[in-house]
């Protein structure tokens, strides 16, 4: 196994209640896992399961109540972390949030993308290069002089992603970044995420409620009630239909269909996630050739 980029060791997190110093019941309970460099991991879980808390711990928006977190071998829960160290972690691990309208700061697309590297004190010529390259990567070069608020939701999210890429991160956490988009916007963002992972080697953590999106990851982690309850390849995870339903999640529609047919005694395989292959197998069963 390659060096883990993210490593959680017995991490718990409790939010503070209304009264200072009084902690609410933990939202993450003694969680341990490792995420390999360059992997594409989907995180599933119902509302309130602790998914977003997990994301915020990774780039130090939150600090764990208990346990240790290592990023690329460095203990970020170490009390000797300086402010500069924290900024460095946040540069290396970018975050893209749910609402595209809340993440854009400038009135021109290329200025928005330049915002991150400018704050890092990058040379102007280097900023120019990074902005052009980032917009190219998300397929938005032709819009560089446009105003962000005239773009569609999917385009805005891609600009937000470009702004992160321009800081040259090694990992990007997408916290339900496709939730507010129309089907085309979702497809655009998912294709961009996949490309960043496969072609640029960026480690991706994709938090989502959409099972079809999770199917595209290398690994799926399911969180329930503050603990990791299922962890495996999409094929392994989505074959546990009953277990997923128990924690309030769904499976893709085709998986549900094949699972129900299988339960009626028909010879189909609900663990196959590729739609084309499922159609091939079902057609063969029905037509007998």
């Amino acid at each position: 196994m390659r060096e883990p980029f993210i490593k959680f060791e017995n991490v718990s997190y409790s939010y503070e209640g209304d009264e200072e110093g009084i902690l609410l019941p933990p939202v993450l309970k003694n969680v341990s896992f490792e995420i390999e460099k360059g992997s594409f991991v989907a995180v599933l879980g119902h509302n309130g399961s602790g998914k977003s808390t997990l994301a915020k711990l990774i780039n130090m928006i939150l600090y764990p109540t208990e346990g240790r977190i290592y990023i690329d071998g460095r203990d970020i829960t170490d009390e000797n972390m300086t402010e500069d160290d924290v900024y460095d972690i946040r540069r290396r691990i970018g975050m893209v949030f749910q609402n595209p309208d809340n993440q854009l700061v400038a009135t021109v697309v290329e200025e928005d993308v330049a915002f991150g590297p400018e704050n890092l004190g990058v040379e102007p010529s280097e900023i120019r290069r990074r902005v052009d390259e980032a917009l190219e990567t998300v397929g938005m070069s032709e819009f560089k002089r446009h105003s962000p608020h005239q773009l569609s939701g999917g385009q805005k999210q891609r600009i937000a992603i470009a702004g992160i890429i321009a800081m040259l991160p090694e990992c990007i956490v997408f916290d339900e970044s496709t939730a507010m988009l129309d089907p085309r916007g979702r497809a655009e963002v998912m294709d961009t995420i996949e490309r960043l992972n496969r072609e640029n080697g960026i480690t991706v953590l994709h938090i989502t409620h959409n099972m079809d999106e999770a199917v595209r990851a290398d690994r799926v982690i399911v969180i329930n009630d503050g603990r990791i309850c299922i962890d495996g390849t999409p094929k392994e995870v989505f074959s546990s239909v009953e277990q997923l339903r128990l924690v309030g999640l769904d499976v893709p529609q085709v998986t549900e269909l094949l699972y129900d047919l299988e339960n009626c005694g028909f010879d189909v395989d609900h663990t196959e996630l590729d739609e084309e292959k499922c159609a091939d197998a079902l057609a063969k069963l029905i037509l007998g050739r």
Partner: peptide, 8 residues
């Protein structure tokens, strides 16, 4: 139902 999990 935007942003809600399947049960929600």
């Amino acid at each position: 139902a935007a942003g809600l999990d399947p049960i929600g």
